[in-house]
Design a protein around this nucleic acid. Structure first.
Lengths: 239, 239
DNA sequence: GTGATATTGGAATGAATATTCCAAATAAAA
DNA sequence: TTTTATTTGGAATATTCATTCCAATATCAC
């Protein structure tokens, strides 16, 4: 507790820009002090040793490991080995296994949401955008030699129904993604790509359901061709 | 090892008919000895104490627990508490955690396959049969207060890609279910329900993929109505 | 009832688990 | 260089894990 917060006075006091592999070797570390910053409590006069690793990069590694193995099958030792940082650093920086998993999950959602939106907004035609999105997901899944699937989907099956907290988190994710699909479908109707009068919320929920299925099945089927044909069938509901 | 097989000479020698809760209280136990049965090796003269629990019933409980919680989140202590049998009995009867999980998985596949086939063969019309099947799955999922989903789907996300052995098992399951769907689709073409010339294997793979998605999504969405509408959208590819 | 033997409950074991702790090393500023 | 606060490596801790063991119990054949 005590050690965890010993630095809390200085949160946000510096813009850090760190570069390096983070594998406990020296890294560059530029700090741009905010000139008019006043120390609120402490009376110290020197700055201590800085972190030897890039926090974002380490978090990315943790994300990949939890993504691939899930929460229960990933041990702290596992993380220490893979992340290349010390046990104590892990606890000091991220708080513990639960907190680290949450941060990894949030990073995935953050990164992945941006990617989905970017992918979908590449085409004017909604039909083409959805096709491009699902085909790219199918291809990426088939090519991922780790067969990680989707972090959110994996977490759904691992934590629901055994954690009410995670069930709510997952539900929020579902609604966000269904809402995103819905917006595109509404635009499709406006653009005359989809005949009006269709049950768009059900269609959006369907797209989300199919997405989940694709992410599960692609873990155990790496045939790019088969997955792409399935996508084409799935999207034929839009015709 | 030694204790595990001490009774192996008598496997199948009796038709057992046991009744009882199995919660370490006395149960009725009727044994109908097979009259012409000859002891192959042993020279014993008395029969030992019989099992105090119904093996099939205990296996069913183990299946439900693994189904709900997964492999890693279920401890032996957990099983001992839930199954109502002794630690030693568990190891003697089922071999260990891994072996018990496998047996539970196989029981699920056995029971569930029979149920799927029964469900599908209720209607002459393939379209109606598929609709009845998916709607019944949606309704059952929404009504399952444990939100267990599908044991096979859960196992897919938990063990793939971290176990090659399970990946193969899961792949076999996928192919079996796709094959089942394909047979029905072929019959649908013969019966004139589906226009000829469609890519039936892709359609079968699509149905399987959607099934997986439904089983994931229904864990965190218990709205029967929403799930059923999604099913209707999904099956519109057949029109 | 008696003898033989498997089951049973619970303790014992040893490995793995998450987390905490501390001395030594180190970076930044004076 | 000295001072200071932090990171770091690895040991220490306490819990939980899967599994084994054994004495006591209970059942079946006689």
């Amino acid at each position: 507790m005590e050690r965890t917060f010993r630095n809390s006075n200085f949160e946000g006091a510096y813009f850090k820009c760190e570069v390096g592999s983070g594998k406990s070797e020296k890294v560059s570390d530029f700090r741009l002090p905010i000139s008019d910053f006043r120390l609120p409590i402490s009376d110290f006069q020197t700055m201590p040793r800085t972190k030897q690793f890039n926090e974002e990069e380490v978090l990315r590694k943790a994300m990949e490991l939890f993504w691939k193995q899930g929460y229960h099958a990933t041990s702290i030792q596992n993380l220490v080995d893979q992340l290349g940082i010390n046990r104590a650093s892990l606890y000091d920086t991220f708080g513990g296994k639960d907190a680290l998993f949450e941060k990894a999950f949030e990073k995935y959602v953050r990164d992945y949401s941006a990617q989905v939106i970017a992918q979908l907004s590449r085409h004017e035609s909604v039909r083409r955008a959805l096709e491009a999105f699902f085909l790219s997901e199918a291809r990426a899944a088939a090519r991922d030699k780790d067969h990680k699937g989707c972090f959110v989907v994996n977490t759904t099956t691992e934590f629901v129904p055994n954690s009410e907290e995670w069930a709510q988190r997952i539900t929020r994710q579902r609604k966000a993604m269904e809402h995103l699909f819905l917006q595109y479908l509404q635009r499709a109707v406006e653009q005359g790509e989809i005949p009006p009068g269709k049950d768009l919320p059900a269609l959006a929920a369907y797209l989300f359901t199919f997405y989940n299925g694709l992410k599960v099945v692609s873990k155990a089927n790496d045939s790019e061709e088969e997955l792409c044909r399935v996508v084409q069938v799935a999207l034929s509901v839009l015709d």
